[in-house]
Amino acid sequence: MEESALWLDGGAGPTLLVIPALFDEGNRLRRQTVEVMRRLAASGITCVLPDLPGLNESTTPLADLDVDLWRKAMASLALQTGARRVLALRGGALVSPDGLAGWHYAPATGASVLRQMVRARIIAGREAGREEKHDALLAKGRIEGLDLAGYALGGAMIAQLERAEAPQDDISIISQDMVGGSALWLRAEASESREQADALAAIVAVGLSMVGVA
C-alpha cells in the first residue's frame, strides 16, 4: 500500500512516528498535530505523520481496513523510517505498534471511539426522522459494516474497534491536565493552541533527551 506522510526533517536527531487521531477527531486535531511536529523538528527531532490507510489523502478503500491492518501499517512504517519512538494521539494509540516505546496523548479506547460515532449517527438519523438503536446498529455493523459520520467502516473494523485497547508497555500517557487548557478534540470547529502545542512538544522533547535518543 502506498500512502503519503507529512515529514518534518529535524536534521541529525532521532525520528518520531506521529500517529494521528482517528476519523473526525483526526481532522479536528490535524493542525494542532502539525504545530506540535514543527516545534519538535525545530529541536532536532524528525517527525513522520502518516495518513492511516483509508483516511485523509489515502486512496485505499476504508471499508477494507481494520485495526490490525492499521497497526501493521504503522509497525512497518516505523521500521522503514527507523523511528525510535512513537507519539500517538487519542484513538491513534489503538494502532500504536507493539514494542515501540513512546507517548500516548489522551488515549481513547476503541469502544469509546465507536460509541461516539454510533451516537452521532443516531442523532443525525433522528433529525431526519429515522429511528435506529445502538445495539442493533452494531450487530448489523459487525457483519455488513456501517456508515458512521461519513466513514464507511467494514465489519472487521467495527468488530475490532469494540475491543481495541492501546498497548501499554514502554508507553507514557500524556493527559490533557499535563498539557493544560481545554481538549481541542472536543471543539466543534477545528482550532489550535500555541500553549498546548508548546507543552506537548516539551514533554516529548524532554523525554527523548532523557532516554538519550535525542
Binding site: D24, M117, A120, I123, A149, A188
Partner: peptide
C-alpha cells in the same frame, strides 16, 4: 454544533 459535536458533548 452538528451531530458529531453533540455526540462528543454528551459523552
Amino acid at each position: 454544533l452538528d451531530s458529531m459535536a453533540v455526540a462528543g458533548l454528551l459523552t
